[in-house]
Structures are given as structure tokens and as C-alpha cells.
Design a protein around this nucleic acid. Structure first.
Lengths: 182, 182
DNA sequence: GCAAATTAATGATTTATTCAAG
DNA sequence: CTTGAATAAATCATTAATTTGC
């Protein structure tokens, strides 16, 4: 899906709602109603913001926010912070979306290669509004119990080209590492 | 742009991805194909590494690398150098990210609070307000030409509960922004 | 065709990080 | 080691869509 917009262009579709025509009360922008809830972007505002985003703008500077806001104010009420938040949210959600896809598909598809027929497709949905990865490992981090104090030197040139993937075949490492040395 | 975030924690996530399901080599390690390409960390591995990092570990000593590697080998193929590189890269990218952010968003929030709306804008294009969805605006993104000096700073917790909705009532915003800074 | 009820989007806040100054 | 800057992630909250009963 286009990263650019997720669900923004859905806003007020049918009737050009912008107040331009007259206060008709149109509806959306919160103009007529006097209702001072949260900012409710106009279709045009969203379009511009989206275009900016798609053009690569991710985190506008103060100046930019200022200008964008000013420009968008033509279409309806808007404040700088709205622009700021919009970019923050849009960026974050775009990212989130991408991430989710990776989890759902990528991962699944990945192994799909060898696991041909299966019910993977279905599983894709189950992760709806939940967090993709929720493995609550309580495992701690580092051993250190031993002694520590690393050797100052040793360039470590680790080189070990062995293609195994067996993973040391231990029974089950409890993972009881602790970062005492920190 | 970076969007990729750190990229680490994206790997395989959802459900226990570890080889459990399939052939020993199964799926995660990316080695399903016998291909000895680059290391492909498992979700668990990444988690542990990340936790270590978050716990303050930035440059593990040889011993530490060794231990970490051993522990992580349970989850899948891994070599010491992978651990080493991971920390190296993670640290670097984290920094990089931060640096970039500084340039971009640094002051955004900072001064956001005081930005109201005003300034100038020129008239260039006009967008027919008739068709919300059909307008093929050629408008570009950001100006930058101007100047705008940034005020030193201030916390400003943007709060501006003014219920206006008038929208600056300007005549017609040309929208002539350009993203030169990109 | 409406309007209450339900669900999906998405604007606005809060919280937890990371790096870096002092 | 402590504190300051500055998010981005997580979360809260409100508005619009959509569904459902009449």
C-alpha cells in the first residue's frame, strides 16, 4: 500500500466541505459547530500534508511547520501543533504499518518456502490491533558472575566461516546473564 | 529516509519463530536455504542483544562477546563476530539516527509552542476548491527561500485552546513550498 | 431513510529510550 | 553519575464510518 497515505483520504469525500464556499456550515471543519474539539483536517489540508509527506518531508522544522500551517489555514482552522502532530503520527503509523507487514507477511512468507501448504494466510489476520511480537521473555542478560575486566587489547578478528546453523545444540540455556560489569 | 529505524527488532516476530516448527534448521535463521549468507538474527537473539544494549552495554569485551554468543547460539546460528558487529552497528546507527533527528526535529518541538500563525505567502497557484479529490495540485513542497530565524528556545508545551475556526480568512493560498533542504 | 450502537481512524498526551553535557 | 534534550513508542481520547433496528 502506499506508504504515503493510510487512511487519510477518506475524510470528507462527497461534498467538498471546505468552508470556502460559505460558511455554510458545512460541516466538517468544525467551523459551524463552534465545537472546539480536536482539529479536524479538511480534505485539502490532508492532501497537502500527504503530498509533503510523500515528497519526503518527515519532520518539518519549526519554520516549515509555521509555513505549512499558515498555508493550510486557508482551508480551515489549523494550528502549528496540528501540523506537528500530524507528521508525528503519520510517520509513526506508517512505520508501524510497515512493521506489521513485515511481521505478518515477511516472516511468514519467509519460511513459506519450505513449508509449502499451510494455513499461514489466515494467521495473518489474527494480529490485528495487537502487538506483533509479544514474547515475554523474562530472561536476563549477562553472566558476569565470573570475573570480568576485559583484556584491553586483542583485536579480535573473529573469523569462522562455517555454515552450520545447528546452534550448539545445548539443552536449554536459561539465559541468566547479568550486566554486573556495567 | 531512515524509516528503517534501527531495523533490528523487525525480524521475525509474531509467534515463536524459532526453528521449532520445522526442520531443525528451520526457518528463522534465514539459513533455510543452506545458504551461508549473512547472519540473520532471530527475534529472540535480537531481543537479548537489544536488552543488553539498553542495559548499557555498548562495546562488549571479547569475553562478553564470547558469552553472549554462546547463549544466543541456542536460538540459532550465530558467531562471535555477529555479536561484535551487531553492537558496532547498533551503536553507530543509534547515533546516526540521533544526529539526523537533531537536525530535523530538534527545534521543532522546541519552538512549536510559540508559533501561532501569520507570516507571509505569495500568490501563485490557485486550487479550485470545487473538487476535493480531483485537484491535481502541482504545488511543490517547501519554500525555504525566506529566512526565518529560530528563537533560541523554550520548552513550550503547546497549549492553545482557542476555539477559533475562522481560518485566517486569507484570500487564496498559493502553496508554493519546496523541499530544498532535503 | 434515520439514529443509536459499534467499530475504525487518527488527533493529542504520556512515557521510556538514547546520547551527551556538566 | 546525574541531568537535559529530543524524540518515537505506547497510550488515551474523540471524531468519522459503518452497522443495525426500526
Amino acid at each position: 500500500m502506499d506508504d504515503g497515505m493510510s487512511g487519510f483520504y477518506i475524510k470528507a469525500a462527497g461534498h467538498h466541505v471546505n468552508n470556502g464556499g460559505g460558511t455554510g456550515g458545512g460541516g466538517n471543519n468544525g467551523n459551524s459547530g463552534t465545537k472546539c474539539g480536536r482539529w479536524n483536517p479538511t480534505t485539502e489540508q490532508v492532501k497537502v500534508l500527504t503530498d509533503l509527506f510523500r515528497s519526503g518531508l518527515r519532520t518539518p522544522s519549526t519554520d516549515q511547520i509555521q509555513k505549512i500551517s499558515t498555508q493550510l489555514s486557508f482551508y480551515g482552522k489549523i494550528e502549528s501543533k496540528n501540523v506537528f502532530y500530524w507528521f508525528q503520527n503519520h510517520k509513526a503509523r506508517e512505520r508501524q504499518k510497515r512493521r506489521k507487514v513485515s511481521v505478518d507477511e515477511k516472516d511468514v512468507l519467509r519460511r513459506l518456502g519450505k513449508i509449502s501448504s499451510k494455513t499461514h494466510f489466515l494467521e495473518v489476520n489474527h494480529v490485528s490491533s495487537d502487538e506483533p511480537e509479544r514474547v515475554i521473555e523474562t530472561l536476563q542478560l549477562f553472566p558476569l558472575n565470573s570475573f570480568e575486566e576485559q583484556e584491553p587489547a586483542e583485536k579480535l578478528r573473529m573469523h569462522a566461516n562455517d555454515c552450520r546453523e545447528t546452534a550448539t545444540t545445548f539443552s536449554h540455556p536459561p539465559l541468566d546473564l547479568r550486566l554486573s560489569f556495567l
